[in-house]
Design a protein around this nucleic acid. Structure first.
Lengths: 198, 198
DNA sequence: ACTCAAACGGACTGACGGTCCGTTTCTTGT
DNA sequence: ACAAGAAACGGACCGTCAGTCCGTTTGAGT
């Protein structure tokens, strides 16, 4: 890859990430990105194909560290399976909350949850495998999806901002729900609004 | 309201509903609707304001019978609360599945689930009240949202079409999840792929 | 029939995603 | 160092579409 191409690529990704964070998932046009990055519009399209490609690239870039971390987590055989699931859910929750506009943009273009897009279907499979391990006999594949559905950016935004439940309360609820799914009961579900340390 | 205005209103709503059903949530333009309904573009905008308004009007129209039915259901004091919740969830599931493109269009426009938009926040409150009744001490408001989140059109479309779980399996899963939420346990969750009669 | 407010309709505008192609810039072989 | 060609650049250009505007038509009350 040519040096100027690489430089522009980085500039475009950084600019797009900033614009999405600042102006929301719809608050930018391709021309905005090009201009703010100091390149021509054609360059953006040449590199990323189309709007969706750009958003996906930004997400890939931004979430790389988190994805590696969570993949490692799901495979850490020295930790009990149920604990791995809970930690994974909590981590993903934090990640989505921290990057709400970006993840929302991703969902708009691919209509899939962040942990379930084509290049990380693996995540879903691993999660389902863990759930199957903890709760043999259950429809683990479905349950994994059910957990991930709670972590969709638009769902979380709705709960936190439109419904006015705060982040801590939603976080506690999601984690309790995950505990319930794993334990086969929901004794802890929503029992308190305090925020578990994890 | 003038006679021609009423006639056009009905024609536009019917046409829009048909186009959405046939070509998906994005497969139509305002001009398409106007032309197919045999009216001018200006008429569509005059009546419905903008694209979002049109979609909302179509949903309102289409879902009226269902909304009345489900409202009555949630208030039927002669039926046990838990059973009312399950029936509500099952009914809503069927409704969303039957009108996937339309409900998807609504969610794109208002980014809210069908049972939780401004004119039927009531639904959510009633559902939460029922859950609170069955499971005092739990965060019923959150749990109601959690159940409704499972019934979002994009979530269901993802599960059914992209992930290849069939409608019966997802239906069973959703209902089991609801049972689990109500019972404080998930013994039934995903236990089988058969479709409960309700 | 007369009037006029309400409704109509389609030309027009502005914004935006995406394409095209003449120009510039990096790289590589000599 | 230089030439040559491939790769990348950039912005003018195009088609589409939501939304506006205004001259024309139509229905309802008198």
């Amino acid at each position: 890859m040519r040096k100027d191409a690489e430089r522009n690529r980085a500039a475009i990704l950084a600019t797009a990430a900033r614009l999405i964070a600042e102006h929301g998932p719809d608050g930018f046009s391709m021309e905005d990105v090009a201009a703010a990055a100091g390149v021509g519009k054609g360059t953006v399209f040449r590199r990323f194909g189309d709007r969706d490609g750009l958003v996906r690239a930004v997400v890939d870039e931004t979430s790389q560290s988190w994805r590696a971390e969570s993949a490692a987590l799901l495979e850490a055989d020295d930790v009990p399976a149920d604990e791995r699931v809970i930690t994974f859910v909590a981590t993903l929750f934090d990640h989505v909350i921290a990057a709400l506009p970006l993840v929302t943009a991703l969902e708009r273009v691919s209509s899939r949850s962040i942990a379930c897009d084509s290049n990380s279907d693996l995540t879903h499979h691993r999660l389902a495998a863990l759930i199957a391990q903890v709760r043999p006999g259950a429809d683990a594949e479905f349950l994994a999806h059910a957990l991930l559905a709670q972590l969709r950016a638009d769902v979380l935004r709705h709960l936190v901002h439109q419904c006015g439940l705060g982040v801590p309360r939603v976080r506690a609820g999601v984690i309790s729900l995950a505990r319930g799914v794993l334990a086969g009961d929901l004794e802890h579900a929503g029992g308190s609004a305090t925020m578990p340390r994890l």
